[in-house]
Design a protein around this nucleic acid. Sequence first.
DNA 1: CTGTTAGCGCCTTCAT
DNA 2: ATGAAGGCGCTAACAG
Lengths: 345, 345
Amino acid sequence: MDKQQPKRPVTLKDIAAATGFSINTVSHALKDREDISLATRETIKETAKKMGYVGNASARFLRSGVSKLIAIILGDLSNPHFSIMVKEIETYFRREGYVSFVMNTDEKSDVERQAILTAAERNVDGILICPTQNSRENLACLRSTGIPFVLIGRRFLQEDCSYVVCDDEHGGYIAARHLLRLGHRRILFLNGPASISSARERRDGYLRAHREASVPADPDLLATTPVTLGNISVDGIGEAVLQKKATAILAFSDLIAFEAITALERQGIRVPEEISVVGFDNIQSKYPFPVLLTSVTSSKTTMARRASAQLLRLLRDRTLPPEQLMLTTQLVVRETCAPPKPQPK
Amino acid sequence: MDKQQPKRPVTLKDIAAATGFSINTVSHALKDREDISLATRETIKETAKKMGYVGNASARFLRSGVSKLIAIILGDLSNPHFSIMVKEIETYFRREGYVSFVMNTDEKSDVERQAILTAAERNVDGILICPTQNSRENLACLRSTGIPFVLIGRRFLQEDCSYVVCDDEHGGYIAARHLLRLGHRRILFLNGPASISSARERRDGYLRAHREASVPADPDLLATTPVTLGNISVDGIGEAVLQKKATAILAFSDLIAFEAITALERQGIRVPEEISVVGFDNIQSKYPFPVLLTSVTSSKTTMARRASAQLLRLLRDRTLPPEQLMLTTQLVVRETCAPPKPQPK
DNA sequence: CTGTTAGCGCCTTCAT
DNA sequence: ATGAAGGCGCTAACAG
């Protein structure tokens, strides 16, 4: 067999030597260029296969300037919301001949900055990023690389760059409206930090629903929790609910909602009998968990595909203007909401 | 500002021209080599930073032969079981200066083969793979690349290669034993395909528990379902349970268990009152879902870290012999199991 | 149709 | 302490 020595990879030069053609001819033949005779192409391709030629992406990039590499930068891959999208993106781009790598920022802007620079150093052709938005600097950093990018899930309103987001304001609105219509008057919003655009916009929707229903929104009911798994803090949620007299909870993500439900039930507070809960992301669209959480959703796979398609277009023609896309949001009603219990006075 | 032109990345040459030193000196200075005077190093590093130098990984690889790239090949990133591990691996390797990219095989061996070749073409330094095991050829393909690799979660018993798995036989054993001790005599095993080592080993444990309990294991209770999300098939699970007179289900993964529970409850069959369910993976260790599924587990983060560490060692010294590691499995008892209902005759 | 030349950005080696 | 030369594998541009 041909498999003992430390295996130097086969190069075009090796194939050239083996077939007697020049390196160049081999290169062209392997790309099936018309200007090489069919016979030659056949011979060369056969020899290449026999020798186990796989090519060298680094060398190819160095010469051509095209790496066929994509960077995906986001907070937390272990969150199903993201992993579902990443899988979609990876599959989409692999079909187009690209390889994509993921970098987790844990929502920290310095890690994100490092990730952007790493992407540049790795010569990626494009970047898909769900920005931390802790600071504005990283957007400048991203721009300064000159690499085409598309934001996904979050956006910068004052800036003119490409993004694909969902209608978070509407999401916050329909979630709050649903609860208000059930009769809830004090809805605790476990929101993400206001620096994140989607958190801000959901809050706006939440407030709009209150205005429409002529229910005053107590600022004390707007709470903030970190959004990364493992850092979500719902300690004392039971106490908070009682103290703030909340009868419902709106959570920034399904994971936060689940954390809250788990904590509440541990304290003997039942959902939805004693407190209603609405989440965001509808991660059950893919996993048929028997949890039955009412949740606001937008198609993650659509979002991922649209963002990928947009980036791909940008890669093919870098002069294209930025494109903004907002997908609709819907409320998926399951079983974690009910009218409020008559409050004992 | 310095940001209009199509932005050719800054190279060592540019810094050399700007500082008046040679390319070589610049290269050395940026690596903080002792043989460049401190003053020069300072100057050069400052200029580099000012000019926004980020380096070029492809060029570096081409010369040095080290890409600092890792490929992760697995079935389905959107499965939390995998995404949790991938996040761990990505973080682990990034701290060591590596970038890792993921490729989903959908458990198809031809896609896997392509992924292996892509990894080789991309000059990865190492591969972490959870093999499909549909065919044996891909292992040969993997070997032929000469790239160090570590299997994760599945293994080839006859082959001498590095792997990190959990004790699946013991997992199948304790799961079945738990159900047998509760009084179940007919446990439907929704297992993965027997080509997958972990499925085979879990089945062996399931059978051992039956032997120990002197309960005959009806082969009719050994069912097989695809393991990728979206392809899991539990259609007619209700009918199957009734027809096979099963009083409990053991599932190859938590996702399959959830699918089964959802399907059963839709048919009005209640868990655990009418049927008990045990899953595998304990994905709730990270997500506090209020589902309370009894599940067999092994630490995913430990598995990921151990596999990463093992691969890293291999990268530092390719002559190291293969290393095999098996982590223990435990049963996490939650609320989906109960003694069987007295069967009406 | 096929071959030659040159160079992408970096690092290794050797020279000064 | 710094510089010069050469080449990693590939492809673009041009020559024959």
